[in-house]
């Protein structure tokens, strides 16, 4: 079958993780949106966060960034960035950290870039705010940053407004803004979903280069398993607000354990091999305000048994560095139905 090189990053022991999240939960208007999400991110590591629309990927990352609307209730047993306890951090401290220690890029650059400021001005502002350098230095940094993300004639394009750039260029500009102060942690929320495959490949290539150069920890949020396979060291699969499986990327693709992960992999047509018929997971994702009891995948699961509606499955070890949240893991054979 397919070969996945062993993960180079994620050493078992080593320096303290860049980001530690434990039992992160968010309720909005009393509705539980995400439930006990945990994640550890180390230097140079890329964690892929995968799930269908509404599974809670964006809410998880916005909660870490403290960018959710005020009515969101956020709880966690642990939230640390570079060893600092973010649960205790003031609003002001968060503002300092965002853009310098941790940064985020989004699917739609027009929502992240300010349309009335030139691209250069947005980088200059960030650099001055976080590093207290003068305008001249900051402008030189802006030109350098735009050059690094592959914008040609950066010394001229630095004075462009976002609307004067093509979609792919805007995406590059947003990456330049996010990375101007060399954050240690980058959260990329579907950074290429709206782009054509050729431009997507350019942006992913760029992110790979920057990732290698800066040794950031990166959380790559996507619903595209191809992107995750090519990019990530570890993968976390979310379903209905919960992480249902996590493992080194190779294991998720070669030996997925959770019925949802297995179904998802079997339902995506490949451009490399023939598929006669796709496996289609029946039904739809449950609404956040009305989740089924017990295992949230139970109404759609081919392996569901009576007990699955009673208890909420915990994320348990099922292989080296591999965890899944399914009550029937021992009974589901790797060769069986998804």
């Amino acid at each position: 079958m397919t070969q996945h090189p062993p993960s180079l990053a994620s050493p078992v022991a080593g320096p303290a993780p860049l980001l530690e999240v434990a039992d992160l939960s968010v309720r909005i208007g009393g509705v539980p949106i995400i439930d006990k999400v945990s994640m550890t991110l180390r230097e140079g590591e890329v964690v892929g966060l995968v799930g269908e629309s509404g599974s809670g990927k964006s809410v998880s990352s916005l909660a870490i960034m403290r960018l959710l609307p005020k009515e969101a209730e956020i709880t966690a047993s642990r939230l640390r960035l570079l060893g600092e306890d973010l649960l205790q951090a003031s609003e002001r401290r968060y503002e300092q950290l965002r853009g310098s220690a941790i940064a985020m890029i989004f699917q739609e650059p027009m929502t992240a870039l300010n349309p009335v400021l030139t691209v250069g001005e947005q980088i200059i502002e960030t650099v001055i705010r976080h590093e207290g350098v003068g305008r001249r230095v900051a402008r030189a940094r802006a030109i350098d940053a735009l050059g690094r993300v592959g914008i040609p004639a950066a010394a001229q394009r630095v004075d462009d407004y976002p609307h004067q750039m093509s979609g792919g260029m805007r995406q590059r500009a947003m990456i330049a803004v996010a990375l101007a102060c060399q954050p240690r942690v980058l959260i990329a929320d579907e950074p290429t979903t709206a782009l054509d495959v050729t431009i997507q490949a350019q942006i992913l290539e760029l992110l790979q280069d920057l990732q290698e150069e800066y040794r950031m920890g990166t959380v790559m949020i996507t619903h595209d398993l191809g992107v995750v396979s090519s990019f990530a060291d570890r993968v976390m699969i979310m379903y209905s607000g919960r992480v249902i499986e996590e493992a080194p990327a190779g294991a998720v693709f070669d030996a997925p354990r959770h019925p949802y992960t297995r179904g998802l992999l079997a339902s995506i047509p490949s451009s490399e091999v023939d598929t006669d018929r796709l496996y289609a997971i029946p039904g739809t994702v449950p609404p956040a305000f009305d989740p089924p009891p017990g295992c949230r995948f139970e109404p759609r699961c081919a392996h569901a048994a009576a007990g699955c509606r009673l208890a909420q499955p915990a994320l348990l070890a099922c292989g080296p560095d591999h965890r899944a949240a399914c009550l029937r893991l021992d009974e589901i054979t790797p060769a069986g139905a998804p």
């Binding site: 996945h4 993960s7 792919g168 050729t198 490949a201 350019q202 090519s230 490949s270 451009s271 490399e272």
Partner: peptide, 24 residues
């Protein structure tokens, strides 16, 4: 060929992306 190469694959493991150079 370039379009196929640019398309992310879940069978190749962690790989470098190979983009078509230049804008459309």
């Amino acid at each position: 060929a370039a379009l196929l190469r640019a398309s992310p694959s879940r069978n190749r493991g962690k790989t470098r992306f190979a983009a078509i150079k230049g804008d459309l």
